[in-house]
Simulated assay, not measured.
Amino acid sequence: MDSNHPHLRAAPAFFTSPKCKVAIPVHHFLTRDALAQASLDHSVRAIGYRKAPDLYDRQERLDGIVLNRIDGDFLLSVCRTRPQRSDWELAHLSGVLESNGLRLLERDAVDIRREPLFSNARAVWSHERYHVSVNDRLKIAAALAEDGPQSILELEENARPSNDILAAVCALACEDLVELSIYEAPLGPRTIVCSR
């Protein structure tokens, strides 16, 4: 997190999800939201934490959050606004990161709060603790295996779970057991659900 942004509100201390190798220290709500979104992103395979590369003379502090994506490992930098960097600074930063096997993924407040992903990710994670019975888990898994990706409404028809299907698929998404299409439209009955 950029230390030049003390006005960012503090967040609870750690973020965890099945994709997290360890509990990730979180100092600000923007970082928590970025991690919640990353945990629901099918291209992110794992979320790790390690000491950020030493950038020597830079004023900026980078957290050591590493996203292992299908296209490589990225150091996640979350800030309210993207820092202005000279060509030399960009080259230096890229060189330091590359020597550590990383590339930079910068996300600022505008990017993180872009709709509908921002509201959708928060809505999904609001169901993190929703209890999905073993029977409903099996019904949902069987319906997805038999009929492939389908809307939440279709899944409710095909699986006939005993509980709230929207809450159930959100909880399963938090467990990284299903994938939800939450990038293009608000979360609802027409949201597509896929097996992981």
Results as ranks from 00 to 15, higher is better:
residue 69 R to A: 13
residue 55 L to T: 11
residue 52 A to L: 04
residue 88 W to P: 00
residue 62 L to V: 04
residue 127 H to M: 02
residue 84 Q to H: 04
residue 112 I to M: 12
residue 100 N to I: 11
residue 128 E to S: 09
residue 89 E to H: 11
residue 94 S to K: 14
residue 123 A to S: 05
residue 73 D to G: 08
residue 50 R to P: 01
residue 122 R to E: 02
residue 85 R to H: 04
residue 75 L to M: 07
residue 92 H to W: 14
residue 127 H to N: 08
residue 105 L to V: 01
residue 76 L to Y: 12
residue 97 L to D: 05
residue 110 V to T: 14
residue 99 S to A: 13
residue 37 Q to G: 13
residue 91 A to Y: 06
residue 81 T to D: 11
residue 127 H to L: 00
residue 112 I to R: 08
residue 85 R to S: 00
residue 57 D to Q: 12
residue 43 S to H: 07
residue 107 R to N: 06
residue 89 E to A: 14
residue 75 L to C: 09
residue 78 V to E: 09
residue 122 R to Q: 04
residue 63 D to M: 02
residue 114 R to T: 13
residue 35 L to M: 11
residue 45 R to I: 11
residue 53 P to C: 04
residue 48 G to Y: 01
residue 104 L to N: 07
residue 66 V to I: 14
residue 110 V to Q: 13
residue 94 S to N: 15
residue 67 L to E: 08
residue 51 K to W: 00
residue 35 L to A: 08
residue 118 F to I: 06
residue 122 R to S: 02
residue 118 F to Y: 15
residue 70 I to K: 10
residue 43 S to G: 02
residue 56 Y to L: 11
residue 67 L to R: 09
residue 90 L to S: 10
residue 125 W to T: 11
residue 111 D to S: 15
residue 69 R to C: 14
residue 125 W to C: 07
residue 65 I to R: 02
residue 98 E to Y: 12
residue 55 L to A: 03
residue 38 A to I: 02
residue 51 K to S: 08
residue 114 R to Q: 13
residue 54 D to C: 10
residue 114 R to I: 01
residue 114 R to A: 13
residue 121 A to K: 04
residue 36 A to D: 11
residue 117 L to G: 07
residue 44 V to Q: 13
residue 80 R to H: 14
residue 35 L to N: 10
residue 102 L to W: 06
residue 86 S to M: 04
residue 53 P to S: 03
residue 87 D to W: 01
residue 121 A to M: 09
residue 64 G to V: 08
residue 62 L to Y: 15
residue 82 R to Y: 11
residue 80 R to A: 13
residue 86 S to C: 02
residue 43 S to R: 08
residue 112 I to E: 09
residue 130 Y to C: 04
residue 45 R to V: 10
residue 43 S to A: 05
residue 116 P to F: 01
residue 85 R to W: 09
residue 85 R to N: 01
residue 42 H to G: 01
residue 74 F to Q: 14
residue 99 S to F: 09
residue 97 L to E: 03
residue 89 E to R: 14
residue 60 E to C: 01
residue 50 R to I: 00
residue 49 Y to N: 11
residue 121 A to N: 09
residue 73 D to W: 06
residue 126 S to A: 07
residue 100 N to P: 14
residue 122 R to H: 07
residue 120 N to M: 08
residue 82 R to S: 15
residue 49 Y to G: 05
residue 79 C to A: 15
residue 64 G to W: 11
residue 64 G to C: 10
residue 39 S to K: 06
